[in-house]
């Protein structure tokens, strides 16, 4: 029985860590959808690219901290390039088209990574190897590091949206993009910022998780599904909803895996989704 309580405690913490990390990805997805009406099927690839870039750079400069700062910037820039080079022509069209375009881009990115890096997974040493003891069990301090970093980024996003000029523009565009334009807010600029921030956040999530999951070319789509569930459950486009749903799903996954196989834990999330859809089809919180 002791064992169970300890496991529950540890998994609850894990759930929190996983949830916050998921929140990084899901917030980006929700933000891009809320402001641009784009379902970004390539979002997982930004997560993956963050990890691969970090591995690559670390072959030359073995500093994890450096990568945590530099790699997201590169991925954001890449995201913006992709947006304006490839997605511009589909932006106004029906959702299915942007969806398929981003899916195609994601597919191409995965293959490119496969071509350049090969099929074997790469490992990255966690920057913090110390373990601490919680309730007689060992727990990796690095996971707390992930938690804190994710939390900082989320808080940073919140501050950015609420307090900064660009945040105001983004919120205005999300609520009424025509009127925002008529006020003088440049839509191309806002789209670039939103897409850049979203992809950057996804890449940070990927970098943080990489030491735990290893780096492989399908790591993006593996996590994208969970992110989609979160965005639907949270209410399409709602950031607060995405955060709540992330923590919820993180906990369900983590605590659930004590009792059932991890794959079944996903199905649990699926059932959760179904229940919520029955009760509240618009998700926990409505758009924005």
């Amino acid at each position: 029985m002791e064992q169970l309580w300890t496991q529950l405690a540890l998994q609850s913490i894990n759930g929190f860590v996983l949830g916050m990390n998921l929140a990084l990805i899901a917030s980006g997805l929700a933000l891009i959808f809320g402001v641009m009406d784009v379902v970004n099927f390539a979002h997982g690839e930004f997560y993956m690219l963050g990890a691969y870039l970090t591995w690559l750079i670390m072959q030359f400069i073995p500093s994890f901290a450096l990568n945590l700062v530099v790699a997201p910037i590169i991925v954001s820039a890449l995201g913006i390039v992709i947006l304006y080079a490839l997605l511009k022509s589909v932006l106004g069209k029906k959702a299915i088209y942007t969806l398929l375009a981003t899916y195609g881009i994601g597919m191409a990115l995965r293959e490119l990574v496969l071509i350049f890096f090969g099929g074997t997974s790469k490992s990255i040493q966690p920057p913090i190897e110390t373990k601490i003891t919680i309730l007689t069990m060992e727990y990796s301090l690095y996971r707390f590091f992930i938690l804190i970093c994710s939390l900082l980024v989320i808080v940073g996003l919140w501050l950015f949206l609420k307090k900064s000029k660009y945040g105001l523009w983004i919120r205005a565009t999300a609520q009424d993009h025509e009127m925002a334009a008529a006020i003088g807010i440049s839509r191309p600029l806002i789209y670039a910022i939103v897409f850049g921030v979203g992809s950057g956040m996804a890449s940070i999530a990927g970098i943080l998780m990489a030491p735990l999951t290893t780096v492989y070319h399908t790591m993006g789509i593996d996590i994208l599904l969970l992110a989609f569930i979160i965005v639907v459950v949270g209410g399409m486009g709602s950031l607060k909803g995405a955060l709540i749903a992330s923590l919820l799903i993180g906990e369900v996954q983590a605590v659930g895996s004590i009792f059932i196989k991890p794959t079944y834990a996903f199905i649990l999330c699926q059932i959760l989704l179904m229940v919520i859809l029955l009760v509240r089809p618009q998700g926990i919180l409505e758009k924005r």
């Binding site: 000029k165 105001l168 523009w169 919120r171 205005a172 609520q175 009424d176 009127m179 925002a180 006020i183 003088g184 807010i185 924005r288």
Partner: peptide, 16 residues
């Protein structure tokens, strides 16, 4: 803008 405050609504134009 429904989810911006009155002040923020006024600021949208001015911040540009």
């Amino acid at each position: 803008f429904p989810e911006l405050t009155v002040f923020e609504n006024l600021m949208t134009g001015m911040s540009v």
